[in-house]
């Protein structure tokens, strides 16, 4: 990744240009041609640095219900439980963390009823697990982009 790539990344994390020829606009900003900007961005997608280019919507404002769930699972069940959890399309993030509460996932559901249904389904399949449903009460910070040159 060279200086131009870094500048492109910073720019398109802030916002991808909303114009007919966005790559031409990006090129103008960083000092390269439309084709080069396009090629560089495709390369950063292909090698996995950029996951996607698109919108991040506010789930709550779209009427969705979200929560963070922590799951205390016996060691032997972690893999199986994690796979089961991931199988729900409403699960957007799922991580194993270094703690007795080892599985952590976020749910984005169309209703509270659906959210409860998923939690009940997981409890039913893993009766030994303890499930902590931890909905947010307040968001203090939500930074969705990172400068690759910090911290």
């Amino acid at each position: 990744m060279d200086e131009i790539d870094s500048r492109i990344l910073r720019l398109i994390q802030e916002g991808f240009p909303l114009t007919t020829r966005p790559y031409a606009e990006i090129g103008r900003h960083v000092g390269c041609s439309e084709d080069e900007a396009f090629r560089r961005i495709l390369t950063m997608k292909r090698n996995g640095l950029i996951r996607r280019i698109g919108g991040s919507f506010d789930s709550r404002r779209l009427g969705y219900v979200t929560t963070l769930v922590g799951m205390r699972v016996p060691e032997k069940d972690i893999e199986r439980a994690a796979a089961f959890v991931s199988s729900f399309s409403e699960v957007t993030h799922n991580y194993q963390r270094e703690d007795a509460v080892s599985i952590w996932f976020t749910l984005v559901c169309s209703s509270q009823r659906r959210l409860q249904e998923i939690i009940t389904e997981i409890e039913r399949n893993f009766p030994e697990a303890q499930i902590l449903d931890l909905p947010a009460k307040r968001i203090f910070k939500l930074r969705v982009h990172f400068d690759p040159s910090e911290p």
Binding site: E14, F16, L49, G55, L62, H145
Partner: peptide, 20 residues
Amino acid sequence: FKESGILRRFGAVLRHHQAG
């Protein structure tokens, strides 16, 4: 969408662990 706040951001989404 952006002005109304339902769209938080429109841009590139990175994979953090690959961004250092």
